[in-house]
Design a protein around this nucleic acid. Sequence first.
DNA 1: ATGAAAGCGCTAACAA
DNA 2: TTGTTAGCGCTTTCAT
Lengths: 342, 342
Amino acid sequence: MRVSLKDVAARAGVSIKTVSNVVNNYQHVTPAMRERVQQAIDELGYRPNLTARHLRQGRTGIIALALPELGNPYFAELAAAVIDAAALHDYIVLLDHTGGRREQEVLVSQGFRARVIDGLILSPIELEAEDLRERTENVPLVLLGERHYDLPYDHIAVDNVAAARTAVRHLIDLGRREVAFIGARRGHSQPAHLRLQGWREELLSAGLSVDDGLIATTEGWGHADGAAAMTRILETGRRPDAVFAYNDPIAIGAMRVLSERGMRVPEDVAVVGFDDVVEGHFGTVTLTSVSPDKEAIARMAVESVLARLSGKAPEPRRVWADYRLIARESTLGRSTQAGRST
Amino acid sequence: MRVSLKDVAARAGVSIKTVSNVVNNYQHVTPAMRERVQQAIDELGYRPNLTARHLRQGRTGIIALALPELGNPYFAELAAAVIDAAALHDYIVLLDHTGGRREQEVLVSQGFRARVIDGLILSPIELEAEDLRERTENVPLVLLGERHYDLPYDHIAVDNVAAARTAVRHLIDLGRREVAFIGARRGHSQPAHLRLQGWREELLSAGLSVDDGLIATTEGWGHADGAAAMTRILETGRRPDAVFAYNDPIAIGAMRVLSERGMRVPEDVAVVGFDDVVEGHFGTVTLTSVSPDKEAIARMAVESVLARLSGKAPEPRRVWADYRLIARESTLGRSTQAGRST
DNA sequence: ATGAAAGCGCTAACAA
DNA sequence: TTGTTAGCGCTTTCAT
């Protein structure tokens, strides 16, 4: 059986309180007493029971992070950043993935899987505002990512419309005129909506026409989806001279198809992705991408949760995280510069 | 303040136990009573306090998973698989990453970060047997991955020596004779030791010479490390006709360097990786790789922890997970077969 | 500086 | 079928 404070107290011949004082580094304990208790602790191999402590304190020191999918390197890298940011505040992270499915996202937002938590950071894909409006769970919730909700929750994201415009502007500046967008999603809810909007706005502001034939939807957000979408566009006979993809895996999947068909990147088709995952730095053609400041996003998300937890948070706010466009070979070509820049 | 069983009981005019019965779906409750209590629950928005339940039950339903780094897609994919496997048993997963640093691995194994857990799955890199021998923490521990320890803990891994031999055999069968190994590590502890050993054994058994000049060490396990190591080999003037890399990111980093120097894969240099991450399926040259059965590893890890938890585990054992070599363009070339095979 | 005792919210043994 | 109660291990007044 596990040893408790009581056992240590008995062993040391003191009260429970004294042991607790030692364990918690309470100031007013005589060195002699501290020594004596510590010895009992060591002999018995006592470890405090955190569950009991949590019950008593009304908090667990755990925050949950629910992401669409860990297989996507962007989310994996983000998860790592959140774990580190939480550790700075002595919090640990419970990880869940939703598959980007609404049903699963609702369950998570309601605390179905993890109710042992002090707070929740959720990156929704299909979740609707109404789902959140019905939320009864009362642990602090912070939203991450692209969707916009007009709801009283903190929301941390890059300005997707502006970032998308930056990406498309880059392509236009390079002289491209037929810019496809890959990664819109089927169905009513459009998580890619804002990036698509940025694509559209920038094309219009450049005096170019917006052609729906150059928008390709995908089922998911992986390499295979990008490959399938690119294939579909090419099979309609369209020959865009540039592609702006919803994210890097989709962009890389698309580049693979271009390569299979003998089209050169960027000479024939320039490609820009989104998320700046490491994978994009090392392909045969390195990938130009919009790079969100993941560390800042993670840090702000954790801090938002903790602020709300301590009650000293301002009203719910939307926070924009930094981003920058990193141009690499998929738009500049290999000769132009060092290919593997960060 | 949060509502408790007591509040609900007062509201419904029944005892605490009755409410508890309803919450836990205890059989012997009259429908009328259930109805009445449920109504009080709904009105008050009661949610059980899991911390209290855990304290009472002596378990939390949480297992921790400590991986070297989430940025490595293999570990990210493995984490996803563990989360799913745990969910099947109503367990949730607390995620931590160690950076593969011994100090951090020791802390994790001692339960420093997360003592709210019922069990721990740890994938060590630098951790030494002696560290584990000194372990005082008593939550079940299951080891994952490549290292071998002669210690009373369950250990789940693919047979790295055999898997490495399979990979090298594949290269030899294709007629390659100068097979480099990239990804050995500096320092005393050699996490890549077994794969290196397999490389050596297979070369010898094929009657080829083992040339230490074809072994390149790396600091880490990422793309950049593979690129640096490949560069180093080439700058010694060596021209291997094949590369076996410790893992896929290293292999992909190496291929990038080959491409920069105008060497063709696989015509000039055939490349085999390890882990079969999705990224390898979509490069300009898709990557031949050893594919461990991640789902099986995750499942067995979770089941091992739970078995030990319930006390009905046999003596600690080493379990081999399945693997297979998946040949793609980086050894077969593009024409030979469909490039993006899974 | 240390001790006694209450109670966090829940489950389960026992009683009615 | 439902109620009473002890206690999981800890922190925290309140005494001493």
